[in-house]
Write a protein that binds this DNA or RNA. Structure first.
Lengths: 111, 111
DNA sequence: ATTTTATATGCCTTGACAAGTATATACTGC
DNA sequence: GCAGTATATACTTGTCAAGGCATATAAAAT
């Protein structure tokens, strides 16, 4: 469980993050809204907390969780290299690419 | 192995996709560049192919793989809901949040 | 035709992780 | 203090996926 990608690979975890994206919630609220068992929710929250994707504050016996999406930037950044493929302007893109890796020099597999 | 998120959770698979993002490659090239065993590469490519993330054409005994990033849009779309958090204007955001979930109404767990 | 090159697949082992059940911890109100 | 509520954790179990090794398939080169 090392990278953000592992974290968001789990569907329930994504659901939790999505839920928290709209508002902060207590464990119990998450449990009810997502129809998961309480331990399951707590465990996923633990993972998310350890990954720095959520944080919580204490309110009596309740813990109020909120999303802390900075860590998701890693994933977003990684996706960036593909975004160009579907973001219209293929030409501007092409030019960009050609800068990065000079014009279609056919032949020659590099190392 | 159902969603795009599972696919990109695997580091070697991400490496392959990144490699293919810059240029198409044969299996052997991937194998050498990423220092993976040939079966490992083939298996990952299988997964990526089944997920529609890459495609290949045949060149004699070689298979030339290239990326087909449309399927990654799902992940990108999902991330979109968080992008606002880190795209400047935290204050505008804060206001938005406060609208969604009115200022600290203590008491009352909602469903 | 035989050998070599390139890729795919089958089998097997191992490790990781998600979920369940039970229990622990901690705070509240009586 | 005791009962109830809210959350976390320990332990166990089933599942599944990744990688290794061996082998199959197929085309190229000799």
């Amino acid at each position: 469980m090392v990278s953000v990608f592992d974290i968001i690979a789990e569907p329930n975890r994504r659901a939790i993050l999505t839920l928290l994206a709209s508002a902060e919630r207590t464990v119990g609220e998450i449990e009810r809204r997502l129809r998961m068992s309480q331990p399951a929710v707590s465990k996923h929250l633990r993972v998310l907390r350890d990954a720095g994707l959520v944080e919580c504050t204490v309110d009596a016996q309740r813990r109020v969780y909120r999303v802390k999406p900075e860590a998701l930037r890693e994933a977003d950044t990684w996706l960036e290299q593909f975004r160009r493929f579907w973001s219209g302007h293929v030409d501007a893109l092409e030019r960009h690419l050609d800068r990065m890796h000079p014009p279609t020099r056919r032949k020659g597999p590099r190392s």
